[in-house]
């Protein structure tokens, strides 16, 4: 059955002077999904988000939300809410007044008791009960993040827009917030649209990931699809790690993921049934805990990386810098991709 997208771009282009930030974009966000827009800085992902929120208007094309054309509709009339990169909590208001800000704009204004109840529920949802009277600058980064989430989610938006929300947090906190965001999204059933340059973040949280480059959508699909069947070498290189070798035709490369490579002391000790095997010299070794990452050199293929899992080290062996080794891969591990 055809389902109407909750946000739809129709040939949206946005230019700033000579810069084409977004080019002929036809993004469609499905209701209830967790979609991430992934790309390096300057790829147009933040501009796309700002056109959804209403902070920017497309130069051409149209944005619609829940089937309604949003051309010329200002931000305060759009049924979406945003979590800003640096949270943008109002410094002159306490946590409760920050969280209830959206509800207090409604006419007629909700009663005080009703507001207090909604704020208490929202703060409980982000595990900040009892923080009502605090000021935003008294909170830690993670707590500010949660207040920003509560302030947006209390309005039950059609879509929650998240602009690199975890970029300012340290690694451990980021991991916790990723899980918390995912849980919130599943429990509330609200569509989440996250913009990030962190591929790990996009892959771990989203139902679908949209990879952007220079204003255009390169590929959109589930994290597994993007990882296993990248449309070109750009996606393969941006999503996960990849080794690229000279391809069979012009403008093509042979792509092999480092973790799909087998490594052993000699060709004979490599597993059976490999499509190709090469003699290499180990250039570098990085211990990563569950994996060991080797940088190896082959005289005609060049330098590439191999991830050797801890579990199979008893069979493959451990190599030192300068050691000779053999590397090979199964036929299914190698993909021929077009370069861009």
């Amino acid at each position: 059955m055809f389902e109407q997208p909750v946000i739809a771009f129709e040939n949206v282009t946005k230019t700033f002077g000579n810069v084409h930030a977004v080019v002929d974009n036809n993004l469609a966000v499905k209701a209830g999904e967790f979609l991430s827009i992934l790309g390096p800085s300057g790829c147009g992902k933040t501009t796309s988000l700002r056109m959804m929120a209403g902070f920017e208007q497309p130069s051409s094309g149209a944005v619609s939300i829940q089937g309604q054309n949003m051309t010329g509709v200002p931000a305060f009339l759009r049924p979406v809410n945003m979590v800003f990169q640096h949270y943008a909590l109002f410094p002159h208001l306490n946590v409760a007044d920050n969280v209830s800000y959206g509800l207090r704009q409604r006419r007629p204004k909700p009663a005080d008791a009703e507001l207090a109840k909604s704020v208490a529920d929202a703060l409980e949802m982000v595990r900040l009960s009892g923080y009502e009277k605090r000021r935003s600058y008294e909170l830690s980064g993670g707590q500010q993040q949660r207040v920003a989430l509560a302030r947006a989610l209390i309005n039950r938006p059609a879509v929650l827009l998240l602009d690199e929300p975890l970029a300012a947090l340290d690694r451990k906190l980021r991991r916790e917030m990723q899980i918390e965001l995912q849980n919130l999204q599943r429990n509330l059933g609200i569509t989440f649209l996250l913009v990030t340059h962190d591929q790990e973040e996009a892959l771990s949280m989203s139902d679908r990931v949209c990879v952007m480059r220079e204003g255009r959508i390169v590929q959109i699909g589930s994290p597994r699809e993007l990882y296993d069947k990248p449309i070109n070498s750009y996606v393969a290189g941006f999503v996960g790690k990849a080794n690229f070798f000279v391809g069979p035709k012009a403008d093509t490369v042979l792509c092999v993921r480092p973790e799909l490579l087998e490594i052993s002391a000699t060709r004979k000790t490599l597993p059976q049934g490999l499509a190709d095997a090469f003699d290499v010299t180990v250039l570098n070794r990085i211990f990563l805990g569950e994996h060991t990452e080797y940088l190896v050199r082959h005289e005609s293929l060049g330098d590439f990386t191999v991830l050797s899992p801890r579990k199979s080290e008893h069979a493959s062996g451990v190599f030192d810098i300068g050691d000779k080794a053999a590397v090979g891969w199964h036929k299914s591990a190698a993909q021929i991709l077009t370069t861009t």
């Binding site: 209403g54 809410n81 800003f84 410094p91 704009q105």
Partner: peptide
Amino acid sequence: SLVEASEDLYATPMGTFRQVVLPL
């Protein structure tokens, strides 16, 4: 982004001025 946050949270331009810009 404080002004944008206010607009995003449904405050009219006048409401944003009164509730965010002026107090700050």
